[in-house]
Design a binder for these strands. Structure first.
Length: 551
RNA sequence: GCGCCCGUAGCUCAGCGGAUAGAGCGCCGGACUACGAAUCCGUAGGCCACAGGUUCAAAUCCUGUCGGGCGCACCA
């Protein structure tokens, strides 16, 4: 981070003296190949035209100016069509160790969000059954994203929307009721589309235990209400427990019912009417979403008089903005992608920029065991639920797996692989890096070696290629965090950690620490390892994965 | 039929305007009388689905084709 911002400000001031501004598209980034130095910049190619110069000539001028401006640049070269390849003096990199150890848990945090209020709504599964593994992925992504946004200076609130009104809930009540009658050996007529899972039978038994068998003789509608109330509460409790177990916290649990009861849906519809964005046709109430780029208009209230989910979703989002959020992030299953245009339309109808709503689509998870696909359909396979999966693989492994892919690509989740404690399984590779360092420090303590204080003379001993690779990587951590937050992609962090862990393991085999040739070198190496451990810890924390000291 | 996402090493995936396309696994061959071998080192493996275009520069952007997934209800 420092390297980039530092270089950029140098170049900006040089360019402004030449009468050119920093072009938006200009980039400063570590080149793929180390032989091109620490940082490569393409600004000469992009501004040469404006200054009426050849890219390489401009690059040469910038090179000279850079070297004159800052002694911490040890080398600047012009390469290829006009790249500036910059190398920093080792002391520059050494100082990142001091910075990391000084900032500790705060290293990498930044205020790019400038306190923007962001809400992340995720999971929000209908309380009609336990969470399955697909919800787990959404939970991991949402939770990690919230951590990422907090670490970059956003004011984040996390939320779970409970669909406790409408048809699905009636179906839940009916399903329990039907099972209840079965259990009591009463005549049953089966409704359409009911929930057939085994847990429904358990719920039915519990209702019987609570209210007695006489419930079967009650007015069915009343009985179903009881069933629904009990079932929803019980299932929701289960969901909360599973999420807590998965280290996922929602600060707000928002009830759809409360929205309806509070009249917010009606008032939202009235507002749309006033704005001329809602109209009646064929006995239904429609919203003119097609005016905002949707394929067609959508129904708000069916001709039966029933509200659609879309209607309450609009009211819900209006409510979110009323609460003062600048940006609202919704995390949905990818099968809902067709819903995005209408929701964006609704946001615009509220007079908002469609960008104020960010929808992250999470692809469904393909659950495997040893390469064989496990059916995820209604038939309750024994490892289908999130809780069961976590019990088998552990929370760390499951979370890391979920966060190690782009969220919009399909994910193969192989139970055999995820629970394996080998290097096939990246979570242990990363955790091992941390544990390795910790156990080294434990050994040092045994031998009465104290953790040294960072000092430039000491750090100057870190001069091998492995040292510099590691230092550069450590310095890159804040940049990684920034780009992960900016693109809302937690997987960027997990890729970074794997790479950092790789460098650490290589370092570890290449350079003895406690057995270093002299005391000073030992101290210097302890410092760089302490910095690595700190960054691994910070990164894993963003993923909600533990950094164990022993494994 | 229309729309969205995706086709990158044998497998699972990064990279999404920049310089010779990367990682892990798997294969093959090496490294413990050194701080944890849950590790490391090395070899092999690619016309980045295909065809056009835009650009000084394309895996990356645009168009089309082919293949895979998902949506297209007065369902959620």
């Amino acid at each position: 981070m420092r390297a980039i911002t530092h270089l950029k400000s140098l170049l900006e001031s040089i360019l402004s003296e030449m009468g050119a501004a920093w072009p938006e598209k200009a980039s400063i980034e570590p080149p793929k190949d180390k032989k091109f130095g620490d940082m490569a910049c393409n600004v000469a190619m992009l501004t040469a035209g404006k200054l009426n110069k050849k890219p390489r000539d401009l690059a040469e001028e910038l090179r000279a100016a850079l070297l004159a401006a800052d002694p911490s640049l040890s080398k600047v070269e012009v390469a290829g069509p006009g790249f500036l390849n910059v190398t920093f003096a080792p002391a520059f990199w050494h100082s990142t160790v001091t910075q990391i150890l000084g900032e500790a848990d705060a290293y990498g945090k930044q205020d790019t969000g400038k306190g923007r209020k962001v809400q992340v709504e995720y999971v929000s599964a209908n309380p009609t059954g336990p969470l399955h593994i697909g919800h787990g992925r959404g939970a991991a992504v949402g939770d990690s994203l919230a951590r990422l946004l907090r670490a970059t200076g956003h004011e984040v609130s996390t939320e779970y929307y409970i669909n406790d009104a409408g048809r699905q809930m009636r179906l839940l009540g009916m399903s329990i009721w039907v099972r209840l009658l079965e259990v009591l050996e009463k005549p049953v007529t089966y409704p359409e589309d009911w929930y057939k899972g085994g847990y429904i039978i358990d719920l039915a038994r519990e209702v019987i235990a609570l209210h007695g068998p006489s419930i079967a003789d009650m007015d069915p509608e009343k009985a179903q209400d009881i069933c629904y109330e009990y079932g929803m509460k019980s299932i929701l409790d289960g969901i909360k427990k599973d999420l807590a177990e998965f280290r996922v916290e929602h600060q707000v649990w928002f009830s759809e019912k409360s929205l309806v009861a509070g009249g917010e849906v009606e008032s939202t519809l009235a507002e749309l009417h006033e704005k001329g964005l809602a109209y009646d046709q064929e006995g239904a109430l429609w919203m003119a979403t097609s005016r905002f780029g949707d394929d067609k208009d959508r129904v708000l209230r069916k001709s039966t008089g029933e509200l659609t989910y879309f209607a309450s979703d609009i009211a819900y989002h209006a409510n979110k903005y009323r609460r003062g959020f600048d940006t609202v992030v919704d995390i949905w299953g990818a099968d809902h992608h067709g819903y995005v245009p209408r929701m964006k339309a609704a946001v615009q109808a509220m007079g908002r920029d469609p960008e104020d709503l960010k929808v992250i689509l999470v692809q469904l998870v393909n659950l495997l065991r040893g390469g064989e696909q496990i059916a995820m359909s209604t038939r309750a396979g024994q490892f289908e639920t999130l809780a069961d999966v976590c019990a088998e693989t552990g929370v760390d492994a499951a979370r890391f797996m979920f966060l190690s892919r782009k969220s919009d690509s399909h994910l193969d989740f192989d139970l055999e692989l995820v629970k394996q404690r080998t290097m096939d399984n990246p979570v242990y590779y990363v955790q091992y890096a941390h544990a390795r360092i910790c156990s080294l420090f434990a050994k040092a303590e045994e031998r009465g070696v104290a953790m040294p204080k960072p000092a430039p003379e000491l750090l100057a001993r870190l001069d091998t290629p492995e040292d510099l690779d590691l230092l550069r990587m450590l310095e890159q951590y804040p940049d990684t965090l920034a780009s992960a937050a900016q693109t809302m992609s937690p997987h960027v962090v997990s890729f970074y950690l794997r790479e950092l862990a790789g460098l650490l393991h290589r370092y570890y085999t290449a350079h003895p620490v406690l057995a270093a040739p002299d005391q000073e070198l030992m101290a210097a190496r302890m410092l760089i390892l302490a910095a690595v451990a700190q960054v691994v810890r910070n990164g894993l924390d963003l993923l909600g994965v533990a950094a164990p000291e022993k494994m």
